[in-house]
Design a binder for these strands. Structure first.
Lengths: 181, 181, 181, 181
DNA sequence: GATGAATGAGGCTTCATTCAT
DNA sequence: AATGAATGAAGCCTCATTCAT
């Protein structure tokens, strides 16, 4: 997966994968049909941990706190790490691997957005969020996370981005400005 | 460019490019040093029209109207079209073509964000925007556009996204809800 | 090596080498980095047997007999055979492969000439050779061998050359005419 | 010719020849049928001046003086200069261009050797040379010149060679040692 | 006559895949 | 089950040659 993330599907060599895995090239073919199916299986496998996170904890405190915690976790454990590159990899290779895009949509996106929408509706019901239409576009809630992932991999060295702080400001826009601690 | 957008850098064949361009393979080398520099030049060339747009029009009316117009233009002429794929292409290949990422940051991102920040500060000064910290993260302003571009190329067929309406809701979050027409 | 000798470096095709070697084209690259390093390694390898000969035998009989034996061996086993073509190949490609010329000078030429010089000085000390200055130009001793190699590959079919007899006459010039047997 | 000499036939590009000649690439084909015939014609043309020298002046003084003058001229105007490289070029490409080798043999070698033989026989008749068999191998007379040409292009930078002095020693071997001036 | 842009055959090299060991 | 040498299809690139201008 590291190799695919670093170079993309086409530019990755099975030689390198084998060396990195500490096996011979032929051994790969005992586990995978070919390079393409290996790529697809690896992506699927890599996505699973993301899926795990989506079984949201029950919203005990305020929705905003839940979201802020979620955002912090996502940014620290995904956007900043190798997992964030997997997201970028899916963006990059998705159009050529529709099955991967399908799988990703089914397992991650649709569930994640459903969860977001539920949270938003709960927050609206509780009066934490005033903008009722936000429930129609749960993508807006996670948009800064996407931006953070892209920014990290392309522009971080030109201009570092404090993704957590950015997300906090984003939540201020949604929930109303919070008095600074 | 179509070929590169469709397949990515490594998987694109010069044979196909030549056929699509209606020239022989050798002819390519009268114009470009090699595949890599052709890719870089094409990306640069493709970006130029985007850059032109960034010389912002003078904010005559309300900032929100300016941004809404800008968003509509961007989504209709970039996110929906082949140009949006170029943005995706840069996200995909940027890490392996640092020069392209550099160029893109210098010519598009830094200028665009500077323009956004100026607009945000103007809006804050005029009282249109209350969240002063937004000026520190102009990325937040365009985040829905990025999401739209990615969504279009990966998930549109699973779940169409009304990007313009999404952007309108986003602006409501920033400027406060506008009374429905 | 046969292919390189027959066609020269640039005109030799890896296709032909592979076919001649009875392997696939790709197999070549398991053993050599590229065409150039293959050429260089082959030349080096081909020279090794020549180098072996240069560890001179102890001059038991007269120096002239030693040289006549050496010349006979050289002409029969080098000038006449495929190895002679390697000498011609080095003359032909040397200027474009400085490393080969360097290697050849270091391993063959400088050692061979040192050996020749030692023999000449010994012969002078013994009174077999009167021309003391010959020791400054050991190249003169082997000049007919070079001429023989070149002649064989270019003009043999126009006018055969008895290289051994020529060398004998050459030795007569150096050692004084020997009474015919 | 400079291009061919520097790189050999196969590695020389018509692009470079055209640029050096100050004409367009297509223009070459108004004068030559193809690269091969151009090479052959150029070699032939380049050889002509060599041929001119062979119409020997009548041997007025001693044969040895004639030869020493000839050698000095040859080494200064051929071995040291670009013309010497042409000799090397013929050695290099001769086997693949039999017509050139033929032409060279006919126009230069056979005539040159005939002239040498005549000189040798004259010197024998005059008593300047004692070794009668030398007349059978006029190649021996010019062998040091060949060695000088090869040495210059391959090993000069490792160990400079005083070709004229070497030739003088060679003549000493043939004519008997001359008292030093 | 001269040009030089265009061509496309052909060469070098890579790398996914196979298979005898 | 694991290996890794061997394969050969396929891609990039060069350059001799052509031909419309």
């Amino acid at each position: 997966m590291d190799e695919f993330v670093t170079r993309g599907f086409a530019a990755t060599r099975l030689d390198d994968i084998a060396r990195r895995a500490g096996v011979a090239k032929g051994t790969i073919y005992l586990h995978f049909k070919d390079k393409e199916s290996m790529f697809e299986e690896l992506i699927r496998t890599a996505i699973v941990p993301l899926v795990g996170r989506l079984h949201a904890p029950p919203p005990s405190g305020s929705i905003r706190d839940v979201l802020e915690g979620f955002a912090r976790t996502f940014i620290q454990e995904v956007a900043t790490t190798r997992r964030g590159d997997i997201v970028r990899l899916i963006i990059a290779e998705g159009p050529r691997f529709p099955e991967i895009a399908d799988f990703y949509y089914r397992e991650v996106i649709s569930r994640g957005l459903a969860g977001m929408r539920a949270l938003i509706e709960l927050a609206i019901a509780r009066g934490e969020i005033r903008q009722r239409e936000l429930a129609n576009f749960p993508q807006l809630l996670v948009a800064p996370a996407i931006v953070a992932v892209v920014w990290k991999s392309l522009f971080e060295r030109h201009c570092p981005l404090d993704a957590i702080e950015m997300f906090r400001v984003h939540l201020d826009l949604i929930f109303g400005e919070r008095s600074k601690p």
